[in-house]
Design a protein around this nucleic acid. Structure first.
Length: 639
RNA sequence: GCCCCGGUAGCUCAGCUCGGUUAGAGCGCCGCCUUGGUAAGGCGGAGGUCGCGGGUUCGAAUCCCGCCCGGGGCUCCA
């Protein structure tokens, strides 16, 4: 009775038990095999109980993981050869690549160290060492790793519950590892060590510091080069570099403090356009605009309960003997708007929107340009609804969120639904019934919207379940954008109620939602997404007029006036230096449209149009030009 | 916050290992010449508390200590 072996190509083989998978599949046709949910080495033998074996290659997540995992072992082996005293920590595959961490007794790896590690890895690959799996009892393994002086491995073993564990050997190197792995070290073809950094054993800052070395590997040289190019591309787009270069913003942290942003005129213009767009769209969707102060008595956040676990993130100070705090969030104020009078069910849902600037004293190590700042502005809204209205509200929020993100040019999203962990109800606010109904409402809304979503059990906040939406940018990176959170906590703490149709007083259901998240952060993402080439409706200068020579300035001024009257953001070049030079300068400042005017244009009331990235479109009458781009000059909701 | 690395002109960087004239370069900026037709015309000039404070030394950008700020991680998160 043969066992079916399915190759990545889809073709099938039939083989007898006892044979090694590696020996029956064509060379280079896969990296690892899967039986049911279990991954096994290609060097494993087919067992009679196997029904189907799927062979997976680098195109599958499991194939890549195996490839990278073996790469990390090769790196660890290289490090052990060069630094015999290094103690092994853990060395997994990551989403993109792999790392291995080592305790090297306070040493850190220099760039030269990394180069020699990379060279030694090449040697190990050339040696093409067989990678052999062995199983042994936990006690034997503890014995083995104690003898090897691998204290961290021993610690891991002591924490494990399994009585039988596996180790993998390649040459002189041995590692505690579940596997699976590639058949031999020669299978790893093209790799690169990327960087080294410090981390803590098990990520806990009370534990010893480990040196983590990160790397990447691919079966194909072109893939490695591609990856490195993409990495370079991401680096080139770094908003912390591009932003100041384009005079959008700066963060002079040594003068004003870390994590704070100064918006320069061009950045402020873009931000204003984004904010005005947001306000218009929210008003159209039944939100009402509110404002709230930046400071309030700290007691407000005692009532909300934030202070107890948020205090270290808050800026707190004393005036007149009373403790004040700068707001880290807007919700209490919106609740106070709600509570300013008794509310009837007829008024619900009530949707309050604010571009609320908040300050959070984030730990210095997490700050990262606009993407993680200490002062930032949320496109924040709180929706107060009846339980019955919840699903429709969530659906509406999802629709609005998608509309907004698409308007900014994002097409792909990753949706996550975070629910509670029903085995620990005591860790959550609200009854089991509350949670069940709420999670159901979120799920129905997601399904009605037609979203595929990832269920994240146990990822909910203590006060309610949530939906997170991540956007995917133009170079394939995911960014957390929208978050939609239910809150069972605040309505109780602030006693937020409404009078229902039957005259009874009921607790309101409250939804926090931020769709772009933080304007600063979103701006940073947009900047990297477009690499500074904002679409015309967002560009701070939409059109620059370039007179060929000084004698064309007066005609250029006429053009400028007409554009400005048409509501187009234009600027006028002063005609100093060569035209080529000025075109280059304008291109580098990412102005989407250049209008070049010389003798030919001035005589015929035309403009020569040059589009960023597309070059010269030739001359056309000014009116024709304005008509042609009419829609693109405007925000999506005004077209 | 913790670990490692770093901070020299507006920007990118050299000089620092091994202390020793007026600390350099390119880009940008300013001026003059050039009056230009689709990504860099020529010449000249200005511009620096070498992150801040202290120490060692006859002498510190350079060596030592503290602090501030940044980068990469850990953790966290909009």
């Amino acid at each position: 009775m043969g066992i079916k072996v399915i190759l990545p190509s889809g073709s099938e083989l039939v083989a007898d038990p006892g044979m090694r998978i590696l020996d029956i599949i064509p060379p280079n046709s896969g990296l690892v095999a899967k039986v049911g949910d279990r991954l096994i080495d290609l060097t494993s033998e087919l067992k009679p109980e196997f029904e189907e074996v799927h062979v997976l290659d680098f195109n599958s997540p499991e194939g890549r993981e195996t490839y990278w995992h073996t790469s990390s072992h090769i790196m660890a082996q290289a490090v052990k050869r060069l630094f015999p005293n290094a103690k092994l920590g853990i060395g997994p595959a990551t989403e993109e690549g792999f790392f291995y961490e080592f305790d090297v007794e306070g040493k850190s790896f220099s760039p030269e160290d990394l180069r020699s590690i990379e060279e030694e890895m090449s040697n190990i690959v050339k040696e093409d060492l067989q990678i052999i799996r062995e199983e042994l009892s936990r006690e034997e393994a503890i014995d083995l790793f104690t003898r090897l002086g691998e204290d961290y491995k021993v610690e891991l073993l002591r924490e494990m519950e399994e009585e039988i564990v596996s180790i993998y050997r390649q040459g002189e190197f041995v590692d505690l590892c579940r596997g699976p792995h590639l058949p031999s070290t020669g299978w790893v073809k093209h790799f690169k060590i990327l960087y080294a950094s410090a981390s803590y054993w098990k990520g806990d800052e009370r534990n010893p510091v480990m040196q983590r070395v990160y790397g990447i590997s691919f079966p194909d040289k072109a893939m490695l080069e591609d990856y490195l190019v993409r990495r370079e591309e991401a680096k080139k787009r770094d908003h912390r570099v591009v932003g100041p270069q384009l005079e959008l913003f700066s963060m002079p942290s040594e003068i004003i403090g870390p994590g704070l942003v100064i918006w320069h005129p061009k950045g402020a213009m873009i931000r204003r356009i984004i904010e005005e767009f947001l306000v218009r769209v929210h008003l159209k969707r039944g939100y009402q605009l509110v404002y709230s102060p930046h400071i309030a008595y700290t007691d407000l956040w005692k009532t909300s309960g934030h202070i107890s676990y948020f205090r270290e993130y808050m800026y707190v100070f004393e005036k007149d003997g009373i403790e004040h705090a700068i707001k880290p969030m807007n919700c209490p104020f919106h609740i106070l708007v709600y509570k300013s009078k008794r509310r009837s069910y007829r008024e619900l849902p009530l949707r309050l929107f604010e571009l609320g600037t908040v300050y959070r004293f984030e730990r210095s190590g997490v700050l990262h340009g606009l993407l993680r700042a200490r002062g930032f502005t949320q496109d924040d809204a709180h929706i107060f609804t009846t339980p019955e209205g919840l699903e429709d509200e969530i659906f509406g929020v999802l629709e609005l969120g998608e509309y907004l993100l698409r308007s900014f040019g994002f097409e792909d999203f990753v949706v996550e639904l975070s629910t509670w962990d029903p085995s620990h109800p005591e860790e959550y606010m609200g009854s089991e019934e509350d949670w069940r109904r709420a999670e159901e409402a979120l799920r129905y809304a997601l399904e009605r919207k037609g979203y595929d979503y990832k269920l994240m059990p146990g990822e909910a906040a203590f006060y309610g379940p949530k939906i997170d939406i991540k956007l995917v940018d133009s170079i394939g990176r995911e960014w957390q954008a929208s978050t939609i959170q239910l809150d069972f906590n605040l309505p109780k703490r602030f006693d937020v109620t409404y009078v229902d149709a039957d005259g009874s007083e009921r607790t309101v259901v409250m939804v926090h939602r931020a769709l772009l998240g933080s304007i600063e952060r979103f701006f940073g993402i947009l900047l990297e997404h477009y690499a500074g080439n904002f679409p015309i409706w967002l560009a701070p200068v939409q059109v620059r007029i370039l007179p060929v020579a000084e004698r064309h300035i007066s005609y250029a001024e006429q053009v400028y006036d007409k554009l400005t009257k048409a509501g187009i953001r234009a600027d006028l070049d002063v005609a100093r230096g060569t035209l080529s030079y000025r075109i280059r300068e304008s291109e580098l400042s990412k102005i989407p449209i250049l209008l070049i005017v010389g003798d030919r244009e001035a005589q015929s009331e035309k403009v020569a149009v040059r589009l960023k990235g597309q070059g010269n479109l030739g001359s056309m009458p000014l009116e024709e030009f304005i008509g042609k781009f009419k829609a693109e000059f405007l925000p999506p909701d005004l077209r």
